[in-house]
Amino acid sequence: MIEAVRRVTLRGFGRLAGLGRRDDRRQTPIVPPGNVAGRALMTVIGIMTFLASLTLGAVTLVSDTASVWESQISREITAQVRPDDGLDMAAALETVRQIALATPGIAGVQVMDDAATGRLLSPWLGEGLDLDDLPVPRLVLIAIDEDAPPDFTALRTRLIAAVPQASLDDHRAWVSRLVTMANATVLVGAAILALVMIATILTVVFATRGAMTGNRHIIEVLHFVGARASFIANEFQGHFLRLGLVGAMVGGSAAVLVFLLMGLWTRANQATPEADQISALFGSFAIGWTGYVGVIVLVATVGGLTAFTSRLTVKRQLAAIDMISPVEG
């Protein structure tokens, strides 16, 4: 300990006096670079950044999906034909298709085939469904012109007059509830992100105080012989900046990998019930370039917060040391 104090003190004197000569020997840093506490802090920062990145990615994903849902309101509606005794389903679907195509403001019409209907029902009824033996309503997807939408009331009236078993759904009530839920999810995610960042700051504060306590004698010697608070704070700031950046990059990279793997899984399992449900809710499960940029900004923010918090903590601790007389009795 005495030798360490001597070397660190000489280093402090050298910097204070502005000596231009450099010692060839490796100088002892104030904060040991590879101690157990440092590795533990880096692990905690990595975990916090991983959770924060997942939260940020999820918020971005839900927000983008909510925007897509709102856009889909103005792009597509659905006509449903319910089975009935004596109803020729194929003829009824064709009638609905012809009426929709003849309506101004309709951009396209597609009758959902048996394969697509079976995929929608397979999570509840299993695979290999024979729709001819089941009283399953059939759907007709109607794409509308966003610039000149049709008169939905008139279209609904004509459909019901031609096919009494038909109904028209513009999805507005359903999508409105989903968008409200998505907005609430975004708010919750933002609150979780703020809590994770606060927890990270508190962790750095305690880690900095612990590092100062473990090296208190060296710090006090340097401080009392004239080393400026900025010099000591810079030592801690550089140490914790490295820890913060390394931990944040590991955590952020792990979160990005999770989203990439989920996107690959979704694309590899297309046309399956599970992938169809995920695609309906989250699209391709890709957070997009905004999400990746957000993760990069988050990593830089965590590293900067770690260094800044450490610097403020060191200066406060040194101010508290100045209030205590170095010589007692």
Rank of each mutant, 00 (worst) to 15 (best):
H217C: 05
N215C: 08
A254M: 15
M112G: 06
R6H: 10
D130A: 12
F282V: 12
I321E: 10
G263R: 11
G288T: 09
M48A: 15
I77K: 09
G86H: 09
D114V: 01
V59C: 04
A173R: 08
V179T: 15
V295S: 03
T78A: 12
A90P: 07
E220M: 13
V136E: 01
V163H: 03
V221N: 07
L243S: 04
D113G: 04
V225M: 05
H217M: 12
V302D: 11
M212N: 04
I2V: 13
F236R: 01
N269Y: 11
L56N: 05
P104F: 02
T153E: 15
M1C: 07
Q72G: 09
A116I: 11
R316T: 05
F308P: 02
S122N: 09
V250W: 03
K315Y: 06
T309W: 01
E274P: 01
D147L: 13
F206A: 14
A92Q: 07
A148C: 06
R11P: 00
S74P: 07
A90Q: 14
L257A: 15
T272H: 06
G294C: 03
V111C: 03
V36P: 04
A307R: 14
F308R: 13
T272Q: 07
L54F: 05
A116C: 11
V175K: 01
T43K: 03
G126T: 04
I73T: 15
F152K: 12
E235I: 01
A91M: 10
F282E: 08
M181L: 13
D276T: 13
G288A: 10
F240W: 01
L129K: 09
P150D: 12
G263D: 08
I218H: 05
I232K: 00
V44N: 05
P164S: 07
I142W: 05
R75N: 12
L298N: 04
V299S: 10
A307P: 12
A227K: 05
L93W: 01
L93Y: 02
A66Q: 11
A100F: 01
E94T: 15
G108F: 00
Q98H: 13
Q80C: 01
R311F: 05
